[in-house]
Design a protein around this nucleic acid. Structure first.
Length: 355
DNA sequence: AGATCCTCTTAGCTAGCACC
DNA sequence: GGTGCTAGCTAAGAGGATCT
């Protein structure tokens, strides 16, 4: 599929993506009726369709009232009608026995713009916390990539908002006085701290955003296992460093076959052996089965712990850990000074023994 | 920016103890 | 011996701080 190149627009932050200011009058927005058979899913659509009660409710609603909110379609250069917003409505509509749906047809979009609309409309229908880990990873990595590459399209989102009677998540995003700010962003100094800006938008820490973006590197099978909680979030993060398609495939297959949950320890171990170039299929099997459960001994000294009963013997409850640490350090300095002076003392052969 | 380290919280497990 | 409570330990999950 060939996508047209459009001049790049710099994007400062998330508010830029959902600026409702009408800027592009070349895009048609009339509502028309399109047969479901003509509609195609967006390529690599990562958002899962409703299931269970939610789907049933949607089908019942469509049977009673029909599809009230038009599906947004992208009529691309190949003449295809690609769904930007409305995968669930199409699915439920078909199950309700309908053959067609009202639709808003969009033309003159780049693939990146289309993808941006898919992400944003999905986020407006469902809150971020409702999304599965894989959907969050996809959404954040796309958001990150878009902010890095820049570009936006506001008119479609305006249409979407009008057609769906959606209140934007934040007043700030719709503030008409803010239009200049929300429009194409300035060219200087706005690409810094991308993770932090994204983190602010989703109420996450920047580290969590970075972890989700890494997790987006996992293959589909591992993503599904993550969503099914067969892999912990942090275990998935460790696996994301295993940037080998075949290794990821083997891990997923073995996990599915064994039906076990992959914990952080095993995931860390796999990453460790991958980094050393020793993560063979056999090694993966051994790690998952528990036969291989320890990294090679580290040469780094392990931290020394002092039991609470010892601490209580020498320190009061008022003394902070820092004060205790300082006192222990001074005591050790005195101890080694005594040892040193005794060893140096002339004619003194006997060494002090400490028990 | 990305990776790693460190710290805090929580849950699960175990040992020790008192009581019946 | 069985039961219940408590304290202590460990590992995992989560997020902030720091390093490269």
């Amino acid at each position: 599929m060939a996508f047209k190149e459009k001049p790049k627009i710099q994007l400062e932050d998330f508010t830029d993506m959902i600026d409702f200011e009408e800027k592009d009058s070349s895009t048609s927005s009339d509502i028309t009726e399109i047969a479901f058979s003509q509609m195609q899913s967006f390529p690599n659509h990562k958002y899962k369709l409703y299931e269970g009660q939610r789907l049933q409710d949607m089908i019942e609603s469509i049977k009673e009232y029909g599809i009230i909110s038009p599906i947004i379609l992208w009529h691309n250069e190949n003449g295809d009608y690609i769904i930007l917003s409305g995968h669930n409505r199409k699915n439920a509509g078909e199950l309700a026995g309908l053959k067609k749906s009202p639709a808003v047809i969009k033309t003159d979009l780049t693939f990146e713009e289309a993808k941006l609309i898919v992400n944003e409309t999905n986020l407006r229908q469902r809150s971020f916390t409702d999304l599965s880990h894989s959907e969050r990873a996809y959404c954040l990595s796309e958001h990150y990539r878009t902010m890095k590459s820049q570009g936006k399209r506001n008119d479609i989102l305006k249409d979407y908002s009008l057609n769906h009677c959606v209140t934007p998540p934040s007043e700030e995003r719709l503030d008409p006085d803010d239009s200049q700010e929300n429009a194409t962003s300035s060219l200087i100094g706005t690409k810094l701290r991308t993770h932090e800006k994204i983190a602010d938008n989703y109420a996450l820490s920047k580290n969590t955003v970075a972890r989700y973006i890494r997790i987006a590197n996992l293959n589909e099978s591992l993503m599904n296992l993550l969503d099914e909680e067969k892999i912990g979030f942090y275990a998935a993060y460790s696996l994301s460093f295993i940037e080998d398609e075949n290794a990821q495939k083997i891990i997923a297959e073995l996990l599915i076959r064994q039906g076990d949950k992959l914990d952080m320890k095993k995931a860390d171990l796999m990453r460790y052996y991958f980094d050393k170039g020793k993560l063979s299929e056999n090694m993966i099997y051994e790690i998952l089965s528990g036969a291989k459960n320890k990294k090679a001994k580290s040469t780094a000294r392990k931290p020394v712990k002092i039991k609470n009963t010892v601490i209580k013997r020498y320190f009061t409850a008022n003394e902070s850990p820092k004060e205790i640490e300082e006192t222990i350090e001074k005591a050790l300095a005195m101890y080694f000074e005594v040892i040193h002076s005794k060893n140096e003392a002339p004619g003194d052969d006997c060494k002090t023994t400490w028990t």
